[in-house]
């Protein structure tokens, strides 16, 4: 039954996942082309110096892509469920309703984790070829909140999508936007390291918001 539910989610999202993979690949390719071009024009030593002395980020171009992918995946996955209240059909399946929602969200999170992990590995591996481990780690820590922001965006957008009342959706969107802004404030390397546990806590907590919205849908709130 779980496999069947995952099959449903895959059918809805497969094109978007492919498109997201292509977008990440294109952006990473662009970053490395830009690195090659910059190091060629200003010299690799000067580039090293700029990175170290001016805390220059090599991964800045990737900043908002995880956010966009997280938001859009939730829409692609859950908007068809809410259209014509198709979620009734899904929740009518002979499974525990909480497990159904958790499986759907778990699929989305697993998909994002896979995409983000591959993108991070490619970025870190690519940076490590030309730069020290410390610089690669610093860029990883810079990009980490942005990728976590993608997961957070997915869960908050899922919460808003599953909410059955439009007025309530707008009401939810305001705190959701505030939480997301907090993931994208500073681009200084390592600026968010101290806040990572809080970010993880926010992400874990917002998983339950969707369950609350689904329960409201089940009760016929409108």
């Amino acid at each position: 039954m779980y496999r069947s539910l995952i099959f449903k989610e895959w059918i809805k999202t497969r094109r978007f996942i492919l498109l997201s993979g292509v977008a990440f690949a294109a952006l990473i390719a662009y970053i490395f082309l830009w690195l090659a071009q910059t190091s060629g024009s200003m010299g690799i030593v000067n580039l090293w110096e700029t990175i170290i002395s001016k805390e220059f980020s090599l991964v800045g171009h990737v900043k908002y892509l995880p956010l966009a992918v997280g938001l859009l995946l939730a829409v692609v996955q859950l908007a068809p469920e809410m259209q014509s209240k198709r979620l009734k059909l899904t929740l009518h399946l002979p499974m525990n309703e909480t497990r159904i929602i958790c499986t759907m969200l778990g699929y989305g999170l697993a998909t994002l984790l896979m995409l983000f992990t591959l993108a991070t590995l490619a970025l870190v591996a690519g940076i490590s070829v030309h730069f020290s481990r410390e610089i690669a780690l610093s860029n990883f820590l810079t990009a980490l909140p942005w990728f976590l922001g993608g997961l957070q965006a997915y869960l908050l957008c899922a919460w808003i999508c599953l909410e059955p009342v439009w007025r309530q959706r707008i009401f939810y969107a305001i705190p959701a936007a505030c939480v997301l802004f907090s993931f994208y404030g500073s681009a200084s390397p390592g600026a968010y390291v101290a806040y990572l546990p809080f970010m993880l806590f926010f992400i874990a907590a917002s998983f339950f918001f969707s369950l609350h919205a689904a329960a409201r849908f089940k009760d016929g709130e409108q």
Binding site: K12, P80, S84, K88, L89, H92, P94, M95
Partner: peptide, 21 residues
Amino acid sequence: SPAAKSRIGLLLEGHIQHTYF
């Protein structure tokens, strides 16, 4: 219960189905 739901066939108004399949 899931067992009871498996014994109930539900047709929504307008023959709504998962149209992406």
